[in-house]
Each structure stands twice: as C-alpha cells, then as structure tokens.
Design a protein around this nucleic acid. Sequence first.
DNA 1: ACTCATATGGCAATACATTGATGGATCAGA
DNA 2: TCTGATCCATCAATGTATTGCCATATGAGT
Lengths: 154, 154
Amino acid sequence: MGRFDIANRLFLRLYQASNLMHKTGTRAVSVFGATTQQWAVLGALSRPAVHQRGMTVKDLIAFLMVSRQNLTAVLDRLEGAGLVERVRIVGDGRLRHVRLTAAGDRNWSEMLASIRDYYADALADFSTEDCLLLFRLLDRLRDSLGRIAGAESE
Amino acid sequence: MGRFDIANRLFLRLYQASNLMHKTGTRAVSVFGATTQQWAVLGALSRPAVHQRGMTVKDLIAFLMVSRQNLTAVLDRLEGAGLVERVRIVGDGRLRHVRLTAAGDRNWSEMLASIRDYYADALADFSTEDCLLLFRLLDRLRDSLGRIAGAESE
DNA sequence: ACTCATATGGCAATACATTGATGGATCAGA
DNA sequence: TCTGATCCATCAATGTATTGCCATATGAGT
C-alpha cells in the first residue's frame, strides 16, 4: 500500500470520524439544546484564564480556527439563548469581549457531566498513551493544514 | 494534564483538522468545481472493484458513513453535473447502482493529479510510519464513535 | 393475496461552514 | 487632520450535515 492509498484512507477516516463526532456529540448535549460547535465555544469561554473578562471575537476565531461569518452566527444563537454576552471594552472601542453569562455558566456546569461521560465513552478503548499520541498527530496535521490554508489567504 | 483535558484537546484538534481539510481540500479541487465530499464520492466510485457496475446508495452510505438525505443531495449535484448516473438493477428493482459516467471518469482522472499534490503537501512532514499510525488511530476512533452512533439508531 | 421489511426518493427544518463583498466604528501614525 | 489599518458586523450565495416524517416501489415470507 503506497503513500497515496494511506493518505486517501487517512483523510477518509478523518472525514468519517469528524462527522460521527458532530453527530454523537450533539446527541450527547441535545438535552441542553446545544451542538458540538456551541459546546466548543462555551468550553473556550469557560477556561479559567478567560472566564472573567471573556475573549475577543478575533481570539475566538484563532482558537477555534473558523471563519468570522460562521462564528458570528453561532454567537448570535448563543446570545439569543442568553448563554453568552458581547461586552464593549474600555481600552479599545473596536474590541468586544464575548463572555459567559450567569446562565451560560450554569448551563456549562450542567453540560460538563454529559461531556465527561461522552469522552469516557468515545475513548473507552483508548489508553492515555493512545489519546496523547492521537492528539499529537492531529495537532501536527492541523498545523500542516493550517499552513496550507494560511499560505494564500493573508 | 488529566484524561478529560487530553480528550478535550483531542476533539478540538479533530474539529479544527476536519474544518481545515474541507477548506484546503475544496480549494485544491475548486478548478474542477468540486468539493471534498464530491471528491470522496467520486473516489469511492472510481475504485477498481466497483468501477464497472457502481455501488448502491446503501453501500455508499455505509462506505462514507453519512446520512441518506445528505448523500442524496450530493448525488443530485454530481448527476446534474453529468459525472455520475443512477442505473436500475436487473436482479432487484429496489436497488440502484450509482456509477461514474464517461465524463465523470475523465473528470476524476484530471482531479487525481491535484489530489496527489494535495496529499503530498498536507502530509509533507509526516513519515509513512506517522501516516499509518494516524490512520490506525483514526480508524479506531471512527469505530468507537460509530458504535456510539449505532447503539440507539437501529 | 397479504403483510412486513427493504431501498430509494422527497420535503421540511435547523445548524454548520465556506467565500465574497460591503459598511461602520475605532485606533494609530504621518 | 487625514490616511490607512484593524475589529466587528451584515447580506448573500452555495454546499454540507443532521433529524424527522412521508411516499413509493419492490422483494420475501406466510
């Protein structure tokens, strides 16, 4: 099996695994009316380092690596649900910090139990070493693809 | 770093890598007016084992692991572009074989060069062992997620 | 014949995700 | 002050991707 065939199968698995992640992940948090993308945003905003002041839209885009137009729609839905708020910054009038509301905070805490169960389920037959290995390989692949994506678009 | 944090980062990388794959992959075949999903379908149909008679919709769904409604839309677009045709089967009137048209065959051959370049680019700093390792891990993750997905929906 | 399962297609709703173009508000430097 | 860059938002188009429900046609077994 040559490198082309390996690459072909590798990307097919990436495609399948990603679709299944969205499908099963969204199902895991569906009782909260959430999706995997909203879960990713809430997770980013719940991190201790940014929990207080929130994150700028720009930083969120860089963190999640999605387009601004896409993120705006997700934030609109989260804002509509009252889980997130956009606050103007004192220092720089252009910036807006997106941060969790009190309701968003509670919501995230409740979701966390489901998410833990989901992770445990999805990675049941993966050792911690396997998880780390897969993480590092995906990290490299992401960087590699990000390099291709960024080469022409800036 | 506990298992939860590892899992969290792992799935974020999967999310990012998948988005970047679609973004850069679609760009790589954009001159043919194709997308990564259409590329996946054409690739499935071009395999020697099924090139002649084609595949049933059911088999395509199992191969790509997407929903019927999603695949139907992709097939409609491919059929509209004249790259694919749905043929009735003699043995079983319910089945339809999806197969490449002559135009689809030519189109795929031309795309193949771009795809090879893309694979080489995306996996430039991956050894063959790395590729195999990542493939096997993604394969296991896909199976694991597929097990979760299939547990309740059948 | 009748019934049940299978295979496909259609319609609708919702949510991602991209590109492209446009506009407005703000900041920083010449 | 003017000029350009930055940050955010909006509108539009296209293409995934899911769920749910209904319809049709065919096959298989009783």
